[in-house]
Amino acid sequence: MLVNREGLVFVGQRLDSTLEAWQMPQGGIDPGEDALTAATRELWEETGVAPDKVELVAEAPGEFTYDLPPELIGKVWKGKWRGQVQRWFLFRFLGEDSDVDIRTPHPEFRAWRWIKPAELPRVIVPFKRQLYEDVLAAFAGHLGA
Rank of each mutant, 00 (worst) to 15 (best):
M1W: 04
N4C: 10
N4H: 11
N4P: 09
N4E: 03
N4W: 08
R5L: 11
E6Q: 15
E6D: 14
G7E: 05
L8M: 14
V9G: 03
R14W: 13
S17A: 15
L19K: 14
E20P: 07
A21K: 12
A21E: 11
W22I: 01
Q23R: 07
Q23T: 14
P25S: 13
Q26D: 10
Q26K: 13
Q26E: 13
G28I: 02
I29H: 04
P31T: 06
D34L: 02
A35H: 04
T37N: 05
T37S: 13
A38F: 07
R41N: 05
R41Y: 00
E42H: 06
L43M: 08
L43I: 03
W44N: 10
W44H: 11
W44S: 10
E45F: 09
E45N: 14
T47M: 01
T47I: 04
G48F: 03
V49L: 01
V49H: 02
P51L: 07
K53V: 05
K53C: 05
E55Y: 01
E55K: 15
E59K: 09
E59I: 07
E59Q: 14
A60C: 00
P61A: 13
G62N: 06
G62L: 05
E63L: 13
E63D: 14
F64H: 03
T65N: 12
Y66K: 01
D67H: 13
P69M: 02
G74E: 05
G74H: 00
K75V: 11
K75H: 10
K78Y: 12
K78C: 06
K80H: 09
K80T: 09
W81V: 15
R82Q: 15
G83I: 00
G83K: 01
Q84P: 01
V85N: 08
R87E: 07
R87I: 09
R87N: 04
R87F: 08
W88K: 03
W88G: 13
F89K: 00
L90W: 00
F91C: 03
F91S: 00
F91W: 06
F93A: 06
F93I: 02
L94P: 01
L94T: 00
E96A: 12
S98L: 12
S98P: 00
D99M: 07
D101Q: 12
I102N: 07
I102F: 08
R103I: 07
R103K: 13
H106P: 01
H106S: 10
P107F: 11
R110L: 11
A111N: 10
W112C: 00
R113A: 02
R113G: 03
W114H: 10
I115L: 12
I115C: 07
K116F: 04
P117T: 05
E119M: 11
E119A: 13
L120V: 11
L120F: 01
P121C: 12
P121F: 08
R122M: 12
V123S: 08
V125D: 10
V125N: 12
V125F: 03
F127H: 15
K128E: 06
K128T: 09
R129I: 03
R129N: 08
E133P: 05
E133Q: 15
V135P: 00
V135G: 00
L136C: 12
F139G: 01
G141E: 09
L143D: 06
L143C: 08
A145Y: 05
